[in-house]
């Protein structure tokens, strides 16, 4: 049997860590309904908090495809939860690129892992896609859906085609910072316990 082929164990690992990541995303997402600026700050919160499980996940990745499958799963779940299909290509693209970067470091190089996680974090921006691409109709939808005009104005002041570049860069940067912190946490707790 080919050793680079994914096995059931790998699929289960992917499933577990995806579930954890979705929970993190969801908890942070709840806060966003308080004020639209918090929606914009997902790019800081989610990479930092999500880094801990993801770094543990990266220590378990040894074959190509695991990170890609994870991004596909996230895209499916985001769709089911009503975030739309517009972001799905971006999520999967981020996953594949992150996977390729990590592969170039043979899944061992720490530097490559940091960059890979930074790229992977770009999936968070996919959630903003409906806001930007369909700005006008989305705004109308929100107003019809019962959001206040104030919330909409703030939301579109925080997220538009000008700020998306900044948000993407922030996402990447905080992904990298998160990766360093996450790695430290993993070292502190998991390597000592012999779980990695």
């Amino acid at each position: 049997m080919n050793s680079s082929k994914l096995k059931a164990k790998d699929f289960i690992t992917v499933g577990i860590f995806t579930a954890i990541l979705i929970v993190v995303e969801f908890l942070c997402g709840m806060l966003g309904y308080i004020h639209p600026y918090i929606v914009a700050s997902y790019v800081v919160m989610i990479p930092l908090v999500g880094a801990i499980p993801m770094m543990l996940f990266y220590t378990k990745v040894e074959k190509f495809g695991m990170i890609t499958i994870m991004s596909v799963l996230i895209a499916i779940i985001m769709f089911v939860l009503g975030m739309g299909y517009l972001g799905a290509p971006l999520i999967v693209a981020a996953g594949v690129i992150a996977d390729l970067i990590a592969k170039s470091g043979k899944y061992k190089s720490f530097k490559k892992t940091i960059i890979s996680y930074g790229v992977f974090c770009l999936w968070i921006c996919a959630n903003y896609f409906p806001v930007i691409v369909t700005a006008d109709s989305y705004r109308k939808d929100l107003l019809d859906g019962g959001y206040s005009a104030e919330y909409c104005d703030d939301l579109f002041r925080a997220i538009n085609e000008k700020t998306i570049a900044v948000l993407l860069i922030l996402c990447f940067v905080f992904g990298c910072i998160g990766a360093v912190i996450g790695k430290k946490v993993v070292k502190k707790h998991f390597e000592k316990a012999g779980i990695v």
Partner: peptide
């Protein structure tokens, strides 16, 4: 995808 989704 099927196995991972089932686990999730």
């Amino acid at each position: 995808i099927a196995i991972s989704l089932a686990v999730v």
